[in-house]
Design a protein around this nucleic acid. Sequence first.
DNA 1: GCGGCAATCCAAAGCGCTTTGAAATGCCGT
DNA 2: ACGGCATTTCAAAGCGCTTTGGATTGCCGC
Lengths: 339, 339
Amino acid sequence: MNLKQLSLMLELSQTTVSRALNGYPEVSEETRRRVTDAAKRHGYRPNPSARRLATGKAGMIGYVMPTGASVDIDPHFVEFLSGLGDYARGHELDLVLSPADAQDEETTYRRIVANKQVDALYISAPYNADKRVALAHQLGIPFIVHGRSEGLDFDYPFIDIDNEGAFHDATRLLVQLGHKRVALINGDDTQTFAIFRERGVRRALAESGLVLEPKNIRSEIMTEENGYRAARRLLEGPEAPTAIVCSSLLMALGIVRAARDLNLSMPRDLSLVSHDDVFHWLKPEHFSVPLTTTRSSIRAAGARVAERLAARISGLEDGARGEVWPVDLVVRGSISGAR
Amino acid sequence: MNLKQLSLMLELSQTTVSRALNGYPEVSEETRRRVTDAAKRHGYRPNPSARRLATGKAGMIGYVMPTGASVDIDPHFVEFLSGLGDYARGHELDLVLSPADAQDEETTYRRIVANKQVDALYISAPYNADKRVALAHQLGIPFIVHGRSEGLDFDYPFIDIDNEGAFHDATRLLVQLGHKRVALINGDDTQTFAIFRERGVRRALAESGLVLEPKNIRSEIMTEENGYRAARRLLEGPEAPTAIVCSSLLMALGIVRAARDLNLSMPRDLSLVSHDDVFHWLKPEHFSVPLTTTRSSIRAAGARVAERLAARISGLEDGARGEVWPVDLVVRGSISGAR
DNA sequence: GCGGCAATCCAAAGCGCTTTGAAATGCCGT
DNA sequence: ACGGCATTTCAAAGCGCTTTGGATTGCCGC
């Protein structure tokens, strides 16, 4: 069932039928009703390829997915997908994933934009002066950044959480509990979220005349193993920290294991605060010692990204508004006063 | 730069240019060379929407993603995505994710097929007599199932691992070590992988005249929390099992925590074997007691799925061939002889 | 009764590609 | 020199939609 057949059986022109269906004003309410009724009754659905060819609009959003033999997709990504689904599900909005060589994402960006495969882009885990953001901006395709990128000479729309504030507050709490030697086990510090977090820790320490010593800061891909290694190195050295702030539950898992291996009990010998992105499959309250966390749901952010992307596509949103979401600080058993 | 412009500047018809570019035989080698040269030189790229409208081919593969307020996307999915990227990256093959209400995936399946949005479908985590598989079969769209579905009255192409064999071998090893009370903490037992695994355990036990008692089998969504709960329940009861086989590292995490809470030491008081899907962010060899696992990389399967899907799209593969991959049994410190 | 203005509706021209059916072209043997 | 046969090329017709520019209709005031 296509437009032609439908217009034939309604004895109307394709123009009118098309307009009726797409809500144009130059069609009487009665005809519109007739048309929409018939369309529903016969299960007419406009062919997206044809529509796309005619309009240039795809009705899809895109994500360039960096891949490579030694590139692993971050498990946080499924949380984002769940959130995207929360919104997109009811809106017939699809996401196209374009795998790209992590060394050369630009080619893929150019391809999907030139091909008009998608109407808008999602960009995640930005670096400072992020090339992809600059490219999307330059190519003139709508996009939203999940996170922030500093050092770009233009504004852009984004959604981010208050990483600096969260880590500042967590650190301040530890300091107030009497901790003097606080360490940070961070994620990849070329990414902006990690930079902001480090900034937050430093600022909180500075407010009490303390500093984050170079040896007390580690930055690695956020895996259990890296958390373990970083913690071992920190805790075995002289003047070991009495409190650790870390960027992911995955790393926290490794830190807990390291503490156990070293016979340090939590929170007596070591206080730990982790950031929690809210995984359904791993929860801080279920650690052997329930974890104090800074908490912000990636899933919620995913839904919001989808919503704003949809708004930008349909022209309801423009401009370069940035949203910064506050982060909860949830206190549980893994912290206590310094000995 | 479109076909028309290109053909104009080559002083050839669009027909010839199109044919030259698509490798049709009725064009002389010399013209073909001229055409491909010019195309490359001017960076000509056929507009996919137009091509799709004309041919009905989309050049994309689809995945209907079940979502819902209480539906969480499985973290295993990112591993699949990594694998898909491994293959698709070099082939300009994109994946479109269509979020669907988990209660009603059929509508979405029909939509994307009717719209010709994708050339082939990926179906994962099947149930027995899986509706989606039946639907895809009936709609006549190429697809590949990741896993197997029993009770369908037709054959279909799939890729699966030997779940039954893996769990059989793991259980047999435990039995050979003298364990009489073996428990299984499985994933959602409406999914076929879980059914096969249970079958493997039962068969191995039966071979030694043992049985899997109802109280010794648990089946839940594979999260840390569920692993913990199931293990507590098993281990606190009378005649607690001396060995557990479980379906995921995530659950193993919870099982280890439960054992620790109950002051059971591994492997002295409890032997544990887990299935390992090979996550880069959580490795069995880095558990406090290194875990014995049945191992099979989802990522590798993802790459293979992409490869076969591409082959089916281009007509290089047809028929209903199923692949069953063997599973490694990797022995580490978490098992020992029964006390 | 008529010009003028909305309100409706329509035919036809794209969008950029593939593919059908037909027309050139070149070459062969006779 | 000419019919016959490949080989190579082409014009034009879709694919199914949107949208431009016009045509038609109905209704108003005068």
